[in-house]
Design a protein around this nucleic acid. Structure first.
Length: 445
RNA sequence: UCCUCGGUAGCUCAACGGUAGAGCAUUCGGCUGUUAACCGAAGGGUUGUAGGUUCAAAUCCUACCCGAGGAGCCA
């Protein structure tokens, strides 16, 4: 009796009869031969049906098969050098489970809107399958990394009574007659947890209601936020660097073939990044470099971009791209102006207009992947900041308690999972790195 | 929210003031090694919506709807 196996196991069943269950990816034929491209989620294999070797019912079933019909194939695993996998299935019998009628995603080009409307089916496509497989590996690597470094996973709430940072627009919802918001960051909760466990991280969905319309934004995305008690900025950067290297190492080890064959990713930068030693650039130096760069560019009559960088401001997409182009691996830009960062950032003792904050910018134009820093430890400073940002003090009383009862320096960062996966896979738009993207103007499927 | 571009067959696009078209998909026929197979045939349309200009509008004008790219903001 043939054994039911998955396609990624066929190498262990050479010349044996097996049963495979899955879907028809594509089909071609030539007279009395039918070639079925067959997938089961673990891989794709070609199943060959030769009319004179099977009964009429199987032959007719093979002819009737349509794209994405589900079927059960029984056949012999044969070595074949013409197959990319090295194997194919010589079909003995074939049973249609469900005949698909008019599958919308044909093996031709499609527009992004059409594909997003059919996201529930698009997931079956090779490229999407590869991206989401890598996402799964990245997520597991993240948990393994923190677990290996002695962190405790403490997840933050999703319903929150107030804006965490007071900077971005939040989704508002009703909560038993009161107003609640969907979380924008677990950061403040992680500080509370750090006082209980020392090293903690949360891993969960995050929501932003800004009407952003770029390839780097989702309204619902997954964020990982570690927080470590008694850690300062330099060590925070060390942690982010080790963390990034760990993820890259894991993905390159497990999915080199998906990256190269399916996603056509140039691995040069990823492999360079494995060496670590990410450059650390002071905000002032980055700002001066950009200003100088734009002033040089302005001399070129063909140049249509900006002609100066105003020091004290945040980086825009172009700024990040030009800056990171100077490097062959991710960089840390540290000590951003306090005015453009969240209220809880520790001021730089050397220049209080700056903050002990850091962004990790991925190369190749992918930009900010990680944002973090050291938290303000002084109660009076925080009170002033809450006031200056126009935030309701009552809502932050519990947070201020952390300064009243055994205050401690701490630092951490937030990683946008989808941005990391976008950079690693080298795709253009981060909407393909989450199974069901939520974008401005898109909440289905 | 602002700027730019777009909406024509199931899908991707062409036709740019004068008979609505192709490739793929679908259906039928042919082929023993295909890989986005190939060859032959057939079916498939209220050109995003509502007005307007014109002898004549997919094409020009106005408004609205929807989408894409970018900006701002951020992970």
């Amino acid at each position: 009796m043939a054994e039911y196996i998955r396609i990624n196991e066929v190498a262990d069943y050479l010349d044996k009869d097996v049963v495979l269950k899955g879907w028809l990816f594509n089909k071609s034929g030539k007279g009395k031969l039918s070639f079925l491209q067959f997938r089961d989620g673990s891989g794709i294999i070609q199943a060959v049906v030769f009319k004179t070797n099977v009964d009429d019912a199987t032959w007719e079933a093979a002819q009737a098969l349509t794209q994405e019909s589900s079927l059960i194939v029984t056949g012999t695993v044969a070595a074949d050098t013409r197959s990319k996998l090295g194997f194919e299935i010589q079909v003995k019998s074939l049973e249609i489970v469900n005949l698909s009628d008019g599958y919308p995603i044909t093996p031709k080009e499609h527009g992004s809107n059409f594909l997003l409307d059919n996201r529930h089916l698009w997931l079956r496509s090779k490229k999407q399958h590869a991206i989401l497989t890598i996402r799964s590996t990245v997520a597991l690597a993240i948990r393994d990394f923190f677990d290996g470094e002695g962190f405790v996973n403490v997840d933050a709430p999703i319903f929150t009574p107030n804006a965490c940072e007071g900077t971005s627009t939040l989704f508002q919802t009703e909560y038993f007659g009161d107003t609640a918001f969907l979380t924008q960051s677990g950061q403040l909760y992680m500080e509370a947890a750090a006082a209980a466990f020392g090293k903690v991280y949360c891993f969960g969905p995050t929501f932003r209601a800004e009407k952003s319309k770029t390839r780097r934004h989702l309204t619902e995305f997954w964020m990982i936020e570690p927080e470590v008690a008694f850690m300062e900025l330099d060590e925070d950067m060390n942690l982010a660097e080790r963390f990034t290297m760990f993820i890259l190492e894991r993905v390159l080890e497990k999915h080199r073939d998906l990256l190269v064959d399916v996603l056509e990713r140039d691995l040069t930068v990823l492999e360079t990044s494995l060496k670590g030693e990410f450059p650390r650039v002071h905000y002032n130096d980055a700002a001066d470099w950009l200003d100088n760069f734009y002033k040089e560019k302005a001399k070129d009559p063909e140049w249509e971009g900006k002609t100066e960088f105003e020091k004290g401001g945040d980086f825009g997409g172009d700024d990040e791209t030009w800056l990171t182009k100077q490097y062959d691996r991710p960089i840390f830009v540290h000590r951003f102006p306090a005015a453009i960062k969240a209220f809880y950032m520790e001021p730089d003792p050397e220049d209080p207009t700056l903050s002990l904050s850091v962004d990790m910018l991925a190369p190749e134009g992918y930009g900010e992947v990680i944002g973090g820093g050291q938290r303000a430890g002084d109660l009076d400073y925080l009170l002033k900041q809450i006031d200056a940002h126009g935030l309701p003090k009552e809502a932050f009383e519990w947070y201020l308690d952390l300064r009243r009862y055994g205050g401690f320096p701490s630092a951490g960062f937030g990683l946008g999972l989808e941005r990391m996966v976008t950079w690693i896979t080298g795709i253009h738009h981060l909407r393909e790195t989450i199974p069901f993207p939520r974008l401005i103007n898109r909440i289905s499927p």
